[in-house]
Structures are given as structure tokens and as C-alpha cells.
Amino acid sequence: MAELPSIQQLKNFITYGKYQNFTSAARAANITQSAFSFQMKRLEELVGIQLIERSNRGSHLTKDGEMFYERIAPLVSDLETCLCDMRALNGEMQTLAVGTMSSLGDVQMNRHLAYFQKNHRGAALRVYNKEARELLRWLSEDKLDVISLFDLPSLDISAYEKAFFCNENLVYYAPHIEDLQGPITADIAASNPLAQYSPQYVMHDYLDHYFSVYSSVRPMTQAWFSTPYAIMNYCQQNRMGSLLPKRFLQAMGVERGYYDVIPPITLPCYLLYKKTNPNYSAIRLFVSYIQETYHVYERQK
């Protein structure tokens, strides 16, 4: 019988398929680039086809590699889930402490967390909603295993592994301000009554900088809140506008009353964690699940 690839080779190939870059994939797999490259060459030998096209300009999956990735990724995920479930039957439960930004109001992420826990019985989750600086402090003190966070200029996330999972677009939400036609400029948003995040939050600093650069008008801020839920509700009750995540509004069932902004505000969202964390394997399973969930969501939009 022909020799089969190892699970680790397949997992690393899946990692490459997500990044399509040897340096990034090797870093995510926590091995040297040379060792990673050797594993991919050995995998190609065992499978009998070229999976990765290599050149001086970089690398990418071949058509056969893409087909292999699409077929093998769910199989490896099912195997990892099965192992977690079997360990759970023996009383081995890995508990992950997950932190999400309270100013993000990530309804979708909360739903994904619940679905992940339902379908991975070997992993229990403790979820904390905190502001960005506190999330980073808790992660540094090992009180959290993984956090979801905007990549904001004022935050230093260089000490952690980061896995991109989506882009967050902020829109101008003003359901009771009449005669608006999008897209909305920073001047228009600043000229109308504005609800903002509380001054102690990094999102307030980021949006304050946005207005200082792109608006010639000082923002007419009339209310400050700690969560997008409170901001949204206040705008629904008053003639007020605010900059809120589009994904949040859609998840809350809001279909109208918001507009794209000029210049656009697009914030990359990352999952941050430590490679040295003893729960690293469970973290990677969780990260892979979230990345694939958002990848599928984007394909369906």
C-alpha cells in the first residue's frame, strides 16, 4: 500500500492554502520556512502531483492544488473535531478564553462562537467583551487565549500571532436625518449631531483622527456611549448620526438609514494569540474555523 501523508503535512498544506505564501504559512505553522518547504515537497511526492507553483516572484496553488485543498480541508477539520469529541468522552475538555471588542459589537462573532462550541464538544469557551486596550492586557497576562481586534494604528499587536478573518467597513448611520444621499463625506457627518464612542476608547481616538484629517468642520458630538448597541438605539430615537460597523447593523436587522462614507473606513479584523500558549492546538482549530466561516460568508455575499 502506498505511503500516506502525515496529518501534520496535510495541516501545513491547508495553512499554505490559506496564505499562499511560504513565509507567512511557515510562521503560522510555527516551524522554519525550510522545514515547511520540505514538508510541502514531500507531500507532493506522496500525492503524486504538483500542488504548489513556485517561481522567483512567489508561489501559489496549482489547479490540482486548489482541488486538493478543497477536498482535504474539510476532512482534516472533521478529523480534528472527532479527536476533540473523543477526548471529551474521556473527560478531557480544553477551555478557551475568548475576548471580543465591546466597541465592535460583533454579533456575527458571538453566533460563530456558539456554533463552534455546539459542534466541537471537546472545546469549552469562556467569552469576554472588553475594550481593546484591556483585551490586549489580558492577552499579555494569559487571562485570554485568543482575542478578536481591529488593527488600529494606536495599538501595538506586534508581540502576537495574528490571523486575518475579515474587513470591517464603517458606515454613517442616521435613520432620522432627512435628505441624505450617499456616500457621505466627513464634513457632512461632522456637521450633523453626532453620537460617538466614549473618549476613553481607542475607537473614539481613531474616529477623532479621521475627522481631524478629512473634515474641515469640528464634529458636533452630542452623546457618548460604550457600545454600538447603545449608539444605534440612540440614533433610532433621535435626530442623530454615527459611524458604525456595517456588519453589525446588518446583523441587527437594519436594512436602511446608513450610507457609505468618503473617504471609506475599512478596518482589518484579526484574531490574536500566543504561539507559546499550551492551548495552541485548540486555538488553531478555533482560528481555522472562524477564518473558514468568514471566507464562506464573503463568498455568499
Rank of each mutant, 00 (worst) to 15 (best):
A195H: 05
Q200M: 13
Q300C: 11
Y128F: 13
M67G: 13
S102E: 11
Q39R: 14
N90T: 14
L149A: 12
R54D: 07
P268N: 09
I52T: 05
L96W: 02
T23V: 06
R87F: 05
S77F: 14
N21S: 06
D260S: 09
L61R: 05
F225N: 04
M232G: 03
R54S: 13
E131G: 07
D64F: 15
E45Q: 09
R133F: 02
S288C: 08
K301E: 10
V296C: 15
L89C: 15
F164I: 01
N119G: 09
T62M: 08
Q20Y: 05
N277Y: 05
C84K: 05
L207K: 03
F68V: 04
Q236T: 06
G241Y: 07
A29T: 05
H176K: 14
Q39L: 02
P245F: 11
N192P: 13
M240Y: 01
Y270I: 04
V217H: 04
L79Y: 14
N169A: 13
S212M: 14
G182Q: 11
P228E: 07
A190V: 07
D145G: 01
Q94H: 12
C82V: 03
E141M: 06
Y172T: 08
Q39G: 08
H295D: 15
C269A: 04
P5N: 06
A28R: 02
E298Y: 00
G122V: 10
K246Q: 01
G48S: 07
F38E: 13
R54G: 12
I52Y: 04
S191I: 04
D78P: 15
E80K: 12
I177G: 05
R54Q: 13
L170T: 14
A88D: 01
Q9I: 02
D106E: 09
T266H: 13
L51F: 04
Q8M: 14
N110K: 15
Y19S: 06
I262C: 12
Y259C: 03
L144Q: 04
Y297W: 10
